[in-house]
Design a protein around this nucleic acid. Structure first.
Lengths: 302, 302
DNA sequence: GTCCAGTGATCTGTCTTGCTTATCACCCGG
DNA sequence: CCGGGTGATAAGCAAGACAGATCACTGGAC
């Protein structure tokens, strides 16, 4: 057990104020209190130091003693640190400083949204310690619910998640149809959903009610058919590879169309009524101020 | 006017104690208070930060919030600085830290006493800022009385100085007689005062009642004669030079006999009853703790 | 489910602290 | 010698800190 501290911040504050003006009355005005308070506080401080005087008070002139002179820089440093703590507290409270742990699904990294958002997050908040990692959607949800992850970027929608898990859309993009080089649609400028009824589709592994797959199924449902799923693959890179190999066609988000892979064509869909949305998933009433600040930089939607 | 500090050291102390144990009861025991006090103080601290919580208290487990985690290192630094201030205060109070301004007469530097005393002063007190300069005795006294000098090494005795000026002997040495090479006494091993009645003497500038000159006059008076002063010189180096030139003989302290100058002989005086003393002169009840500490290292004499 | 041990929050009364106002004591310049 | 300026002192009051007792909630044992 360390020995208890014997003097208070207030006492050092008084000491430094008097040392700066060498005048009790002016120092009192500066601190916004009456003069007797200073006499008392200073006396308390001196008592804390075994009665060693900090000032020579000659009734007419106040001067620092050698003891006071030795103490002054340390006392100043203490006050400065005290102010610093409060400044840091303010920054931490408003999320301009602190730590946040985020994750993102692989396909979110194509969209360029990550860089933009995180740049915004750090704008004027250099003290933010950001831990970012790629993680699949289902694992993200588990980590967030368990409190081990602050938030994650996922493909919406979610389903079967606790009510306390909220999402907010941060990016929306069109869905394209990826077709192999030798496919009958490879050269057309765009395609209508109705013409795809008989195609073999490559879908992601995720179930039909979550993420990008849910949008893809919705597209087909809107067109009045259920897609024939010929293959499944975990990521869009794999899906596009499969398409390139001629195993079928696939829906992909616009951002995934950057991979001009072995002659795969990416066709706009004329009558698509749904888009793919990337959202940030997080627990309701987040306590992490950095996360709150991040949410504030996003328009409050969904 | 800086904005006032909103939180006290005590509150940070409580915060850090709880953060270290993550247990209110144990932290309270550690601080030597009852548990409710911690709840209160912590709440006050949180209120000071706009109500932002520092801990999640789940009744069963106490964990730092992200806000608390961000604040903890700064709060620790603050407490460390507070402890440092008190340590510095203790060191300054006991004279192990601080500033002291000393002076010495030229002849004190021969005696080697300066180095020894000041080495003792700095032993275990590396924080002492020592300002040292050579200064004539009369100027030293003026500076000390005016409060511009803490203390000075002079040749005793003093006279005609304020009662508040005290001295303490730090070194005592025999007085020798310096004689020119071609003097009738140049070859004798020692000399008796009675044989010097008719000599021409070289004395220092200072009056007959202060410093080394007072001792020299006393020697002669003890032998029953008043010295015939042929010349005066300000320092012992000059006096020995005069002796070397054959202008007369002179009394010098042993330490000044180091200058084996052009064949001057330094003879012990058989029946000398006085010695020359170097003393530290200072104002009574010194407020400078470093000076007090210096005085403590000297046996309280004179 | 029921109970129990553990733990933080709350309540209350007491003592301490910090501040204010009023006044005193002292120094110094005219 | 007197008056302005300044720090110290005194008294009173409001706020704060703390102890002790108690409450309220959690989570594990069975």
């Amino acid at each position: 057990m360390e020995k208890p501290l014997t003097a208070s911040l207030r006492q050092y504050e008084v000491f430094v104020a008097i040392a700066e003006t060498l005048h009790f009355g002016q120092a009192a005005a500066h601190l916004g209190v009456a003069q007797p308070a200073l006499t008392q506080q200073l006396k308390h401080l001196e008592t804390a130091f075994d009665g060693a005087l900090l000032f020579d008070r000659n009734r007419r002139r106040v001067t620092l003693t050698e003891f006071g002179r030795a103490l002054l820089p340390e006392a100043r440093a203490l006050l400065q640190q005290a102010r610093r703590v409060e400044a840091v507290a303010e920054a931490a409270r408003t999320g301009q400083r602190g730590r946040i742990e985020l994750a993102y699904v692989g396909s979110a990294s194509y969209a360029g949204i990550l860089g933009r958002l995180l740049r915004e997050l750090r704008a004027g908040a250099a003290g933010v310690n950001l831990i970012l990692r790629e993680l699949d959607m289902d694992l993200q949800i588990a980590e967030i619910v368990a409190g081990r992850l602050d938030a994650g970027f996922v493909r919406l929608p979610l389903s079967g998640v606790p009510e306390t898990l909220l999402t907010r859309t941060v990016h929306t993009e069109d869905i394209l149809l990826a077709v192999p080089p030798d496919h009958r649609l490879a050269r057309v400028p765009s395609v209508a959903m109705a013409t795809l009824r008989e195609e073999n589709f490559i879908f992601s592994h995720l179930g039909p009610d979550m993420g990008f797959a849910a949008c893809a199924y919705q597209l087909c449902a809107d067109a009045g058919f259920a897609p024939r799923v010929a293959h499944r693959a975990p990521q869009f890179t794999a899906i596009v590879n499969f398409v390139s190999a001629g195993l079928g066609v696939a829906f992909v988000p616009t951002s995934a169309a950057r991979m001009k892979d072995a002659g795969v064509s990416f066709l706009p869909i004329k009558d698509a009524k749904v888009q793919s949305r990337i959202g940030l998933a997080y627990l309701r009433d987040p306590s992490n101020p950095v996360l709150r600040r991040l949410l504030d930089t996003i328009e409050p939607e969904s």
